[in-house]
Every structure is written in structure tokens, then in C-alpha cells.
């Protein structure tokens, strides 16, 4: 007596890509990768007030091998950088990265010897969340944007290979990060 009774019988036509994207975004597990202040807000994201369990996402996978998303929640120190990369490499494809907070996005206020100036120096970042730390509301917003706009629309098979090749060609043609000028206008 649920919604399934209201759906008319028949055939739905869609792409395999669409089905996979839909399934991927519906079972989308972050790894527990708590670093600093943002990790506390990331825990709050799963705790009662904000309750990621409402859409079935309160489980943080303790093993990177079971995770789809790495939330870089806080400042990445030079000492932590190889660990972060190793955790990323241990995650199976397809995988996504969220840079939570300004430190993970750009180094933030800690422009010094100890902190890597942004998680994107180590791993490809899909979405950046501003804030110091971002509120759990912002994390929820970022999570839904990531799921709806990036995970769900990820290309597959031949399209994925073509997208990889296009991205690689673009990356080879693009100037190195330190040569990029005037991007922040």
C-alpha cells in the first residue's frame, strides 16, 4: 500500500549512466577522516540536531576501502600529508574528495611552514566548503550539492574514459598552479 501501488506498470527508459549515478549517490559513504576543528562539526553532522541519519548517511566508514568520499576536515600538516594521500589511494574508485573548511581548501589563516596550503596539493578535490569551521548546515548543503551535481552525473564506461582523457589533456595544456594568474577576479 505504498507509493509503488500508484506507479503505473510499464517500462522506464534511461541510461545506464543515469541508473548508476542514481545508485551511487544513494549509497554514498564518507570515510572517518577527522583532522581538526572541522572534525567536531563533522561529528555534529551525524549527531541528533543535524542528524544525517534522516537521509541514511550517518554511517562513517572506518575503513577507507569501504568509503566513497573523503572529507578533509581540517588543516593538513606536512606530517599528515603522506598519510592523507595513502588513505586516498586506499579508497576504491569511484571516489570523491570534499575540502571542508578554509584550511583544507587553501591553508586558511595558517599560511606557514607547517600546513599544506590546501588539500588540492595532495588529492583532487571535488567540492570546497568555506567556513572556519563550516556549520553542519553548510556541510549538509555541500553534501547534497556533491551528490546531486557531481556524483549523480559522473560519466561511465566509454564516457568515463573519454572524460578522463579530456581532463588529462586539459591538465597537460593548463599552466602549473603556481603560474596561474588572475583566477580570483
Amino acid at each position: 500500500m505504498g507509493i509503488e501501488d500508484k506507479i503505473p506498470q510499464g517500462v522506464v527508459l534511461t541510461t545506464l549512466e543515469g541508473v548508476f549515478g542514481w545508485m551511487r549517490q544513494a549509497s554514498f559513504w564518507p570515510a572517518t577522516f577527522g583532522l581538526a576543528c572541522c572534525a567536531i562539526e563533522m561529528m555534529t553532522y551525524g549527531a541528533p540536531r543535524f542528524d544525517a541519519g534522516r537521509w541514511g548517511q550517518e554511517v562513517f566508514r572506518a575503513s577507507p576501502r569501504q568509503a566513497d568520499l573523503m572529507i578533509i576536515s581540517g588543516r593538513v600538516s606536512q606530517k599528515m600529508a603522506p598519510v592523507l594521500r595513502q588513505v586516498y589511494d586506499q579508497m576504491p574508485n569511484p571516489k570523491w574528495v570534499m575540502a571542508m573548511g578554509v584550511c583544507a581548501s587553501s591553508g586558511g589563516m595558517f599560511n606557514n611552514y607547517a600546513i599544506v596550503q590546501g588539500g588540492d596539493h595532495l588529492v583532487p578535490v571535488d567540492i570546497y566548503v568555506p567556513g572556519c569551521p563550516p556549520r553542519p548546515d553548510m556541510l549538509i548543503d555541500a553534501m547534497w550539492k556533491l551528490r546531486k551535481d557531481i556524483v549523480m552525473k559522473r560519466p561511465m564506461a566509454a564516457n568515463e574514459i573519454a572524460a578522463f582523457e579530456a581532463a588529462e589533456a586539459a591538465a597537460l595544456a593548463a599552466p602549473a598552479t603556481h603560474e596561474m594568474k588572475g583566477l580570483l577576479r
Binding site: 598519510v83 595558517f110 606557514n112 611552514y113 607547517a114 600546513i115
Partner: peptide
């Protein structure tokens, strides 16, 4: 030391 941020120096 995995979260050494250099706050004191900064």
C-alpha cells in the same frame, strides 16, 4: 605531531 599547525610561530 600530525596536527602541528605552527600556531605559536604564526
Amino acid at each position: 605531531g600530525f596536527l602541528h599547525t605552527g600556531i605559536e610561530k604564526n
